[in-house]
């Protein structure tokens, strides 16, 4: 499974067409919906230290509050809708996403992101992966 996951993850990172910050927003938003405590901690850490997501954006996703950036907010809402609705966002969800400046290719990329995170979120649910020491500063539980 590691080979499958890493191939899909690296491909998303390299080819999704999203900036590193947007990629993290996609991963965090999906992990939020799936209630994956491991991925929320890990991607909060990556956002803080590697992909340089503004901490107020990460914290807004973690607390399910308004993201203080119009475009990232639209991205997060769309990724959450695709995840929550099992790939069936409403027409309004799609219109809102495209109106924010994203393209149809970005819709494909969000689907890829959901694929990547479905692997990790489900793995962590079933095997209850212990959170690494490096990520413990960003331990998360859904409110």
């Amino acid at each position: 499974m590691l080979d499958d996951y890493v191939a899909a993850y690296n491909s998303f990172r390299a080819n999704s067409g999203f900036t590193p910050q947007e990629q993290e927003v996609v991963f965090l938003s999906i992990a939020y919906v799936n209630n994956c405590t491991y991925c929320m901690a890990a991607h909060s850490f990556v956002g803080d230290n590697m992909t340089h997501v503004p901490v107020e954006v990460t914290d807004a996703i973690r607390s399910n509050s308004d993201i203080p950036d119009v475009k990232l907010k639209a991205l997060s809402l769309f990724a959450k809708s695709v995840t929550m609705n099992r790939g069936l966002p409403t027409e309004t969800d799609i219109e809102n996403f495209l109106s924010a400046g994203y393209t149809q290719n970005h819709i494909l990329a969000v689907i890829s992101g959901v694929g990547v995170k479905t692997m990790s979120n489900y793995f962590n649910h079933i095997f209850n992966t212990p959170i690494d020491d490096a990520f413990k500063g960003r331990v998360w539980e859904k409110n």
């Binding site: 499974m1 590691l2 080979d3 959170i131 690494d132």
Partner: peptide, 23 residues
């Protein structure tokens, strides 16, 4: 296959996340 990925990850991140070790 997994060993090679773990090695690359260790070199890149300086650690192997528990999830990678589990997968």
């Amino acid at each position: 296959i997994s060993s090679e990925i773990l090695k690359t990850t260790q070199n890149k991140l300086g650690l192997i996340p528990n999830m990678y070790a589990g997968m």
